[in-house]
């Protein structure tokens, strides 16, 4: 296997909140190979968006890393100075955000923002940057890029804005593109188009993509590999087909059982996972999923689950999974 372009090693991160701290990421390890599409799935509050933000060093001011490293093209980004971290953004790693409605400044034209966003591109004039932006807008499927450049964000539709956000992220040909719920704010037709576009662009530019979503269909469409997160931990990691056909972690199974697209019988009610997420200010000593898990035994409640390697590129964080 080649060297990963992005790797997260034993990362733990917490948010300082009034009255304590939330342990949002607990000992997370993941790696992304060049050109690979990795999906990160999980329910709201599992830490997937925080992980995505950490990959581009954009966690909020109240976030604190307690352990671990993040390596981008081999460099430990968290040990770099502010200026070096800033220089990396957009060039080595770029991000597409969830809500295209608010992702752009409302008072600057799309063109001037797309030019600004190339600030880490050296030795290129504003004029050339503008040409690059226009070409990229055309590439992501905006029918009139010249017009779009002069428009303000609110004058474009949601789908167009998300395309523009993807164009912005690809402007500097980053090695890794991180997309945080890129289709959640869009309707289903738009979602399909954006997924199709991402797949096409990935084939063209060969960049690695990390896509964070709670939509399992998006992952099945787009990804090579999946990491399932629960309560700040990666509980299962597997190639996408293997995960869908043979989920091993009880949480993954429960999650897949809840996917409306996979339900064959018409029952009139949607399945759900009983119980709720554990309190992350004081995570349980054993398995975080134990209180909701049908297979949980006593050791699940008291001992932290081991990381069990199931097969090539497959692992699960569980007491009950046999290798």
């Amino acid at each position: 296997m080649t060297d990963p372009v992005l790797s997260v090693e034993n990362l733990s991160l917490r948010y300082r909140v009034p009255g304590g701290s939330l342990q949002v990421l607990r000992d997370v390890s993941l790696s992304v190979q060049p050109g690979e599409v990795l999906g990160i799935a999980g329910e709201s509050g599992c830490g997937k968006s925080t992980l995505a933000a950490a990959m581009i060093d954009l966690t909020g001011a109240n976030a604190e890393r307690t352990a671990g490293t993040i390596r981008l093209s081999g460099r430990d980004i968290l040990s770099l100075g502010q200026a070096d971290r800033r220089r990396m953004r957009g060039r080595d790693v770029a991000m597409v955000f969830q809500d295209p409605m608010t992702a752009f400044s409302p008072v600057l034209t799309m063109g001037s923002q797309l030019v600004d966003f190339q600030c880490n591109l050296d030795g290129v004039s504003r004029r050339e940057k503008s040409d690059r932006a226009r070409a990229m807008l055309a590439r992501v499927g905006l029918s009139d890029p010249d017009l779009a450049m002069t428009r303000f964000p609110h004058e474009l539709s949601g789908g167009m804005r998300q395309r523009a956000a993807i164009a912005a992220a690809l402007l500097m040909r980053p090695a890794v593109l991180i997309a945080d719920e890129p289709t959640t704010a869009l309707d289903v037709t738009m979602e399909a188009q954006i997924i199709h576009l991402l797949r096409e662009l990935q084939a063209d530019y060969g960049c690695a993509i990390v896509i964070v979503t709670h939509h399992l269909g998006v992952i099945a469409e787009l990804c090579d590999r999946v990491a399932v997160m629960y309560a700040g931990q990666v509980v299962e990691e597997a190639p996408v087909d293997a995960l869908y056909h043979d989920p091993r972690h009880p949480y993954t199974r429960a999650l897949l059982a809840c996917d409306p697209a996979r339900i064959e019988e018409h029952t009139g009610r949607l399945p759900a996972i009983g119980g709720r997420l554990p309190d992350l200010t004081a995570p349980p000593p054993g398995c975080a999923f134990a209180p909701r898990c049908p297979l949980a035994s006593d050791r699940c409640r008291t001992l932290p689950p081991p990381r069990v390697t199931i097969g090539p590129g497959r692992a699960a964080l569980c007491h009950e999974v046999a290798p």
Binding site: I56, L58, R86, R87, M88, R89, G90, R91, A94, M95, F97, D99, T102, A103, F104, S105, P106, D116, F117, Q118, C119, N120, A165, A168
Partner: peptide, 13 residues
């Protein structure tokens, strides 16, 4: 606001 995060994500000073 989100657009500030976007500007930071592209490494603007």
């Amino acid at each position: 606001e989100n657009h500030i995060r976007t500007a930071r994500a592209f490494g603007l000073p």
